[in-house]
Amino acid sequence: MTGRRTITISLWKQLPLVVWLVVLWVLLWDELTVVTVVSGVVVAAGVIRAFYLPAIELSGRFNIYWAAVFAVRFIVDVITASVHVAWQAVDLRHTPRSSLIAVDLHTRSDIVLTLTGEAVSLVPGSLVVEVDRPRTVLYLHVLGTKTLDDVEKFRGDVLKVEERIVRALGSAEDIRRINRSRVRDGRSPIHRTRWQLRYEQRIEEHSARMHERRDRERKES
């Protein structure tokens, strides 16, 4: 019974992928019928069972204002970077310097990690060359980094991209991690709703209980 329940939960988490595979199957057959839809569901279920991928954990929240802010800022960044890269290409006085920069993101979410990497790669002058998924670290090749200040500025810009994505659709845990970092740096948190405060309080209480438990175990041993 437990095994069947686990399979059901797994399929439910994979629902967005199943829907997309069914749509793709129907498009390949070029007709919408009961047979194509049912066969598409069967094929999709077989694919996700045979080629298992971790389920995409959606946060369940979406802020349209911050999504619009992210979109507008992304367009501005693309235009600005395009002009900057074009100028470096024609400026014969200086040879463009590049760096390989590691950016340790706050999030542990696959979707925020992916969106941040894609957004940064689409801006001219920067490209993700490797991703450390367990530690959510992006390794990027970046043009126009003459000094260490340029490197730190770019690293900060990537974290700002991550922050805008989290503001738009990040989970409570993503927000908590960014809030903690901002408070540590003397800045105000990005999201302090009553629900978020309760979540962060539960995490802190759980962490405190774990510390007390480890202290007791050390004393007993």
Results as ranks from 00 to 15, higher is better:
58 L>F: 15
59 S>A: 15
59 S>D: 14
63 N>H: 15
63 N>E: 14
63 N>R: 15
67 A>W: 12
67 A>D: 04
72 V>R: 11
72 V>G: 10
73 R>E: 14
74 F>Y: 13
75 I>V: 15
76 V>E: 06
76 V>F: 08
77 D>P: 00
78 V>A: 03
79 I>C: 05
80 T>C: 00
82 S>P: 00
82 S>G: 09
83 V>E: 04
84 H>W: 03
84 H>M: 00
85 V>Q: 07
88 Q>R: 10
90 V>Q: 07
91 D>I: 00
91 D>F: 07
92 L>H: 09
94 H>N: 08
95 T>Y: 07
96 P>A: 04
97 R>Q: 15
98 S>F: 11
100 L>K: 10
103 V>G: 07
104 D>I: 03
104 D>M: 05
107 T>I: 12
108 R>M: 06
108 R>A: 00
109 S>Y: 12
110 D>W: 09
111 I>H: 08
114 T>K: 06
115 L>G: 01
118 E>P: 00
119 A>D: 13
119 A>F: 12
121 S>N: 08
121 S>D: 07
122 L>H: 10
122 L>F: 09
122 L>K: 06
124 P>Y: 13
126 S>A: 15
126 S>W: 09
132 D>I: 02
132 D>A: 01
133 R>E: 13
136 T>G: 00
138 L>H: 07
140 L>M: 13
142 V>P: 05
146 K>T: 03
151 V>A: 02
151 V>Y: 01
154 F>G: 05
154 F>A: 04
158 V>F: 09
160 K>T: 14
162 E>H: 01
163 E>V: 01
163 E>N: 01
166 V>Q: 09
167 R>C: 09
167 R>F: 05
168 A>I: 05
168 A>Y: 03
168 A>F: 01
169 L>Y: 04
169 L>K: 04
171 S>V: 05
176 R>N: 07
177 R>F: 02
177 R>T: 02
180 R>K: 11
